[in-house]
C-alpha cells in the first residue's frame, strides 16, 4: 500500500512517524504534522502509520475519519472556512454563505475549478462579537459582507 505513494511523500511520512512514535498519545499530533506538511493525509499512509505506532489500520482510519479537521484528499491553494454557528447566523451568515457559494460556483467540501480555494463550513471561530466571520487559511476576518468577501477572494486568487 505504501508503495502507491510518491517516494518523496513516503519518505516525509516515515520521518514524521519516527519523530512522533515515542510520544504518549502520538496519533493526533502525527496526523496534524502530516497534514501540515503535505496538505492532507493520504489513505496510503495508514499502513506505515499503523506499523510505526503499533495500531491497526482500522484504528488509524477510524481516527482520521472521526475528526472534521483531517482530510484524505488534496485541497486548493487556500482554504476558506465559513462560520455556520448561531452567533454568525444572528448576523446574516446564511445569506453570506449563499453568496460565497454562488461567487465561487462550488458547494461546501469542494474546490474552485482554478484550484485556488476550497470551501469548508466551520462551527465557531471564537470571533462572535464580530460576526459574521470567516477564516482564510489561518487568518480570521470579522464583520464580513459581500464586498469584503469579494476582496478577500480576489486577494486569495492573486496570491
Amino acid at each position: 500500500m505504501a508503495n502507491a505513494l510518491p517516494v518523496e511523500i513516503s519518505t516525509t511520512i516515515q520521518s514524521l512517524i519516527a519523530q512522533h512514535k515515542n510520544m504518549p498519545g502520538a496519533l493526533l499530533p502525527l496526523l496534524h504534522a502530516i497534514q501540515d506538511t503535505i496538505g492532507y493525509i493520504p489513505e496510503d499512509s495508514y499502513l506505515p502509520i499503523s506499523k510505526g505506532l503499533a495500531l491497526s489500520v482500522a484504528e488509524v482510519h477510524g481516527v482520521v475519519t472521526f475528526y472534521h479537521h483531517f482530510r484524505t484528499h488534496p485541497v486548493g491553494k487556500h482554504i476558506l472556512h465559513v462560520c455556520r454557528a448561531e452567533s454568525c447566523q444572528a448576523m446574516g451568515s446564511e445569506k453570506l454563505e449563499a453568496s460565497i457559494k454562488a461567487k465561487l460556483n462550488i458547494d461546501y467540501h469542494q474546490t474552485t475549478s482554478d484550484g485556488a480555494i476550497t470551501l469548508e463550513p466551520i462551527y465557531c471561530l471564537g470571533n462572535c462579537a464580530c460576526s459574521p466571520a470567516v477564516m482564510m487559511d489561518d487568518e480570521v476576518y470579522g464583520r464580513m459582507d459581500n464586498q469584503k468577501m469579494a476582496e478577500l477572494i480576489s486577494e486569495a486568487r492573486a496570491s
Partner: peptide, 25 residues
C-alpha cells in the same frame, strides 16, 4: 499544547481524554 481536530464533542471531558490518547473522541 495538544491540538484538537475540529470535533465539538471533544469538549466533553471523557471524549477529550480519548482524543488526547490518540483515539476517536
Amino acid at each position: 499544547v495538544r491540538r484538537a481536530a475540529g470535533a465539538y464533542v471533544c469538549g466533553e471531558e471523557t471524549s477529550l481524554l480519548e482524543s488526547l490518547e490518540g483515539k476517536r473522541g
